[in-house]
Amino acid sequence: MSILTNRESIREAFDTRKYVIDNELSTVVYLMSKLNKPLLLEGNPGVGKTAIAGVLAAALDTRLIRLQCYEGLDVSSAVYEWNYQKQLLSIKIQEKANRSEAEKEEHIFSKEFLMPRPLMQAISESEKPPVLLIDEIDRADEEFEAFLLELLSEYQISIPEFGTVKAVHKPLVILTSNRTRELSDALKRRCLYHWVEYPDFDKEIRIVKKHRPEIDDDLALRMVAVVQKLRGLKLAKTPGIAETIDWVNGLMALGYDELTPDGMDETLGCLLKSTDDIRRVRDHGVDQLVEAV
């Protein structure tokens, strides 16, 4: 837990892992361990919400347990499930054994037959506190959100056949949301809240340089300027940081060392992910865009 004792060490740890972290976020990460609260990250797609969890786990040298939410996600695929095949076999084997029904039942609902899913894994991790990433919580159903409440405040899970499992080490929980629906107040109240914004010009340049240290200064400057400009247009899918990095990688892979309209046209697919957007930008004029910066 050493790096979480103050913000400077958090910043350094993130920095060495190619994540440019600002003051606000480092404060929030610090508070997360200080107050033992989950952190709810909201923001547009592609601004590095999920990456935070990965970097944090790497920095703490601990396990990252990830739960990707989707519509219809239920407890059996998120928390635990019984190993039915094994249970059936076990019942068969015990058929002749001289045991009462109650004993048999107790046996097949013991830990041996339990298959832990991400949430269960997160609270039963025995060595050190893992980082638990609950990704895109806004996609899960409201019932699942309600279920999370117990886990996030008590760090325990109740299994009817079995009893309550309490966390050995409280995991560091990060939830992300794209805000496709409003989360319940109850869930929000249990979390620290942070809104991840698109980076400003300087920050984005630092990010690009972190990922491609060999990049030409002028090229980085111009590419970031173009991206920032594209964000200003009302596109269907606004490019995030992930797209910027993809684009830089793409352009460099093609051997360009300066930003030309041709190069941009060829690599537009790295940056824009819908035909409408691509058409719009082409209509707007790729040349113009490149020359303007």
Binding site: L35, Y193, H194
Partner: peptide, 25 residues
């Protein structure tokens, strides 16, 4: 608790910390 924390004595850090706690959207 945050107000007591010496690590957050700086005003802007204090601001960020309170913001994370008190805001929900």
């Amino acid at each position: 608790k945050v107000a007591d924390d010496p690590a957050l004595s700086d005003k802007s850090y204090f601001h960020d910390a309170l913001k994370a706690i008190l805001c929900t959207s």
